[in-house]
Design a protein around this nucleic acid. Structure first.
Lengths: 248, 248
DNA sequence: CGGAAAGTTGACGCGGGTCAAGGAATGTGG
DNA sequence: CCACATTCCTTGACCCGCGTCAACTTTCCG
């Protein structure tokens, strides 16, 4: 529990903000090397998390932001009557825990889908830091604002779009996010189950499954369980054309 | 356009953050009087806006947050093919424009529903201010974090809930927001049309209309166009029980 | 008074949820 | 290595909630 900062410990894995390949997706974006070294000092790095482990749960009093370095997370919350709503998925370079800043406890839970390494950034340290580094403050606002725009894009999707549009938009979002971290925009493995996709998009898992089948029949992609190859990117884009934000 | 700060102009309406009745809903919450006076200096106050006027439009390069003092706003964005998605409604004490911090231009538009007075807070001044007043920084984070939680609550609503649940949740949200600004939680006038409600909740306006009729038949409320009297608050609550956030 | 916008109400049909059965991949113990 | 369970995914049949279309009423505003 609560591994202390291990920046200078034995077997130092040479991980720091300034050499992290994700830095330009992450908070350090646009910061000088010196500033990054500063930021680096407040980051707690921990042993990798295993699938099924929680980063935090709704209601926890933890006081940190978490940046994902590798792997994938799922954010969700549960209603009193037990069922869960998936709020989103977090890929490397993205951040979770913003919703804990409100009253000091998280409003949602965050669980690991694939073995992940994660950087913990305590709010209070981050806040001090923001005073010293105006660039960091601005970048945080950007991340937050993006989060809001992204959620609002989802509102549009859930409120107005057909099941088909939703899945297309979801796939495009995954594609562009993989692309921006240097991976193929057309071939990737989804880290989440049909269950999670359906839940996230407000669809039954049967519908998701049928849609994957349809898309494949219409030459938009080939799918084998979680392995996806997008073969009709332009046509997918045409389907969701008009869906505001490009999502993250 | 762009009226300059009129804090000290003639007919000074004696409006300042420190005597604003909404201060505890707004950014100054928890700030000292001196700090409020500081904040007050950067607030630009303008002539009241009339219904139909825009505070800002998606794509505008404006660089400010806006706090509503009286009246009501609607936030929305439009898709390329012309139709609009209502993202939310802003009541006194609430803030719009957070989504402009990302890249300096707004992702959504904000239009006035009822004659409204609005305080403009330029980002850059606000940012300076945050350095001087840690309390303000924290309060801003709180406002932002609330916004995110609120959007996520909507995601749950749109993804999982029936039309009935959605309208009930909407009414409860309005009720509690009116309540927290000192008005009756059971009797109020909706500032928006059925069109807007339907759009916001992802429902056809006919459905909204029918639901209002049903609710009335079931003694949950009485409704006359935009005039609402909630007569079955507990039963309304029971309907949406399990819907995460209380919304704002 | 007239024309438009807002709201209501009824009839109808489809998108997608639900239920049910079965297949494919992965794990588990013998 | 194989039987067996479990989880994940797929596919088909049915049906209902809510969107769509249409007609009408009420309110608003010049």
């Amino acid at each position: 529990m609560h591994a202390r900062s291990r920046t200078l410990k034995i077997a130092d894995i040479k991980v720091s903000c300034s050499n992290c390949s994700l830095s330009e997706l992450c908070l350090p974006h646009g910061m000088s090397h010196d500033d990054m070294d500063e930021l680096d000092k407040i980051v707690k790095r921990q042993q990798p998390y295993q699938p099924g482990q929680h980063i935090f749960r709704a209601g926890d009093r933890g006081q940190s932001l978490f940046a994902v370095r590798s792997g994938a997370l799922k954010s969700y919350c549960t209603t009193e009557d037990g069922d869960e709503q998936v709020l989103g998925f977090t890929l490397p370079g993205e951040v979770v825990g913003l919703d804990g800043m409100n009253d000091g406890s998280y409003a949602s839970s965050s669980v690991v889908l694939e073995t992940s390494s994660v950087c913990e950034l305590p709010y209070d340290r981050l806040e001090e830091m923001c005073h010293l580094l105006p660039g960091l403050n601005r970048q945080m606002m950007r991340v937050i604002s993006k989060e809001i725009s992204s959620d609002q894009g989802m509102l549009l999707l859930l409120g107005k779009r057909t099941a088909e549009d939703r899945l297309a938009a979801f796939l495009l979002s995954m594609s562009s996010r993989y692309h921006s971290r240097g991976l193929s925009p057309t071939e990737f493995n989804l880290p989440m189950s049909r269950q999670d996709i359906g839940n996230y998009l407000g669809l039954a898992i049967e519908t998701v499954s049928r849609l994957f089948a349809n898309f494949q029949k219409n030459q938009l992609l080939t799918v084998n369980r979680r392995q996806i190859v997008l073969t009709g990117l332009p046509r997918l884009r045409a389907m969701v054309e008009g869906c505001a934000g490009s999502k993250r």
